[in-house]
Amino acid sequence: MLGGCVKQVSKNFPVPPKAPAQDTAEPKKTGNPYQIAGKWYYPLQSASGYDQTGVASWYGPDFHGKLTANGERYDMHAMSAAHTTLPLPTMVRVTNLENGRQIIVRVNDRGPFVKSRIIDLSYAAANALAYDKQGTARVRVQALEGSDSQAVAANTAAPVQAADPVITTPPVRASAPVQVTTGSTTTSSNMGRIYIQVGAFSSYINAKNMQERIRNDFANAHIQPPAAGMPAWYRVQIGPFDDVGTVENTVIELERLGHKGSVVIIR
């Protein structure tokens, strides 16, 4: 994928078709070594400890609605990313080193295949980091797996798998960026709020069952009702959160409990 070009982006792109139903326990895919334009790429077996600095680009309209390397439909308005070697999917924190903004995205695609670029973000993610107009930015990419997740796991019991399958839909679209000042993880009060979406259901009863299962661990779990004029999906979300650090710890805890398909959103 050749992201990073500055483009006029319309807000009227159709939502890609919903993804097929899948279990909450989302397996990691590493994949075999592959070759692009004469260069070999070797997918990592684990994202643990990944922490790199480099140039980020973004990709949008040309790929909107097409299949990602993970077999999902790419939604340029969702908080996602492409990486050449990280396991799919992997949750990563991306910091724009030019303005201090931070977001958490889900890596579900391969790319960018351009020299010196380390990650290709969706349009929504690039917009949240405020570099969508300039096309690229210098960023730091840190996997949520690593010392933090290992510390949590070392002090807790083994994961518990959810009993019922979760119907997945394209993630709720980001509506506003989250401003994070350099050296801080506190979001600005006049910007969008961060939520973690655990699942989306066509049945309110199934959504209610999921909410009840996680409420003991996450008191702020709630059901986001369908928006007017939108398909009837009941989304189970946790939040809002005021800082990125708490979001990271919550995602790690969800994974420990077997909820590995969570998506970080901003609205």
Score class of each variant (00 low, 15 high):
Leu2Ser: 13
Cys5Phe: 14
Val6Leu: 01
Ser10Ile: 01
Lys11Thr: 10
Asn12Ile: 07
Phe13Trp: 14
Ala19Trp: 10
Ala21Tyr: 10
Ala21Lys: 15
Ala21Leu: 13
Asp23Glu: 07
Ala25Pro: 07
Glu26Ile: 11
Pro27Ile: 07
Lys29Gln: 14
Lys29Leu: 15
Gly31His: 02
Asn32Ser: 13
Pro33Trp: 02
Tyr41Arg: 05
Pro43Ile: 00
Gln45Arg: 11
Ser46Trp: 00
Tyr50His: 11
Val55Tyr: 07
Ser57Thr: 13
Gly60Cys: 02
Gly60Trp: 04
Pro61Ile: 11
His64Cys: 05
Thr68Asp: 07
Asn70Ser: 11
Glu72Arg: 01
Arg73Lys: 13
Met76Asp: 03
Met76Cys: 08
Ala78Trp: 00
Ala78Gly: 05
Thr85Pro: 07
Leu86Ala: 05
Leu86Asp: 06
Leu86Thr: 05
Leu88Ala: 05
Pro89Asp: 01
Pro89Cys: 00
Thr95Gln: 10
Asn96Lys: 08
Asn96Val: 02
Glu98Ala: 09
Asn99Ala: 02
Gly100Trp: 03
Ile103Asp: 00
Arg106Trp: 08
Asp109Ile: 02
Phe113Trp: 02
Val114Met: 09
Val114Asn: 06
Lys115Leu: 09
Arg117Met: 03
Arg117Cys: 00
Ile118Lys: 09
Ile118Cys: 04
Ile119Thr: 07
Ile119Ala: 02
Leu121Gln: 06
Tyr123Gly: 02
Tyr123Ile: 01
Ala124Glu: 00
Ala124Asp: 01
Ala124Cys: 00
Leu129Gln: 01
Gly135Cys: 03
Arg138Lys: 12
Val139Phe: 00
Ala143His: 04
Ala143Ser: 12
Glu145Ala: 15
Gly146Trp: 08
Asp148Leu: 14
Ser149Gln: 12
Ser149Met: 10
Ala154Lys: 12
Val160Ile: 10
Val160Pro: 05
Gln161Ile: 12
Ala162Tyr: 14
Ala163Glu: 10
Val166Asp: 05
Thr168Trp: 08
Thr169Gln: 02
Arg173Asn: 12
Gln179Trp: 14
Gln179His: 14
Val180Gly: 03
Gly183Tyr: 10
Thr185Tyr: 14
Thr185Ile: 11
Ile196Leu: 01
Ile196Tyr: 00
Gln197Asn: 09
Phe201Tyr: 13
Phe201Ile: 04
Ser202Ala: 13
Tyr204Ser: 12
Asn209Met: 11
Asn209His: 09
Gln211Met: 08
Arg213Val: 07
Ile214Phe: 01
Ala219Met: 10
Asn220Thr: 14
Ile223Ser: 06
Ile223Leu: 08
Pro225Met: 06
Ala227Thr: 09
Gly229Trp: 05
Met230Thr: 13
Tyr234Glu: 04
Ile238Glu: 00
Gly239Val: 02
Phe241Asp: 02
Asp242Glu: 11
Val244Arg: 05
Val251Ala: 07
Val251Leu: 11
Ile252Phe: 02
Glu255Asn: 15
Leu257Thr: 07
His259Ala: 10
His259Asp: 08
His259Lys: 09
Val264Ser: 09
Val264Trp: 00
Arg267Tyr: 11
Arg267Gln: 15
